[in-house]
Amino acid sequence: MADDAQQQVKKSFMYVNRKAPYGTIYALEALEVVLISAAFEQDVSLAFLDDGVFQLVKGQNTAGIGMKNFSPTFKALGDYEIRQLYVERESLEERGLTSEDLMEITWEDEEDDYAKKPSIRIVSRMELTEVMAQQDVLLNF
């Protein structure tokens, strides 16, 4: 998909998810960009803060609202070599959530006998600002 000139450039892309999974389309369409970006061989990470942390809550059931439950897609991100999902601790706490409430999302480490390793990292607001400051491209949704 990407031509030779682009492939020479490797940038860090962070997709910042700030909104709840349903109610608006931002979360779903953000995930569509994330999946496309995987084809460009860039260094991709995701951040979840504010109501965006609800996107990773396990046991989502959308049957009652007539929407597609797209949360299983997050579990497939490891297959796209997207292994860094930063979740802001303060946003979890403000909403009465803990890491126990989140889906288990892993990636397989080829260099470690395909051991499954967690993709989610809970970080403080301060730590997240530092990670953001290191990015080449930040996309907010």
Binding site: M1, A2, Q6, V9, K11, F13, E32, V33, I36, S37, A39, F40, Q42, D136, V137, L139
Partner: peptide, 12 residues
């Protein structure tokens, strides 16, 4: 066009 055009913008 496709979303790849957005990612390309970020790269270029």
């Amino acid at each position: 066009s496709g979303l790849g055009q957005l990612v390309e913008s970020g790269i270029v």
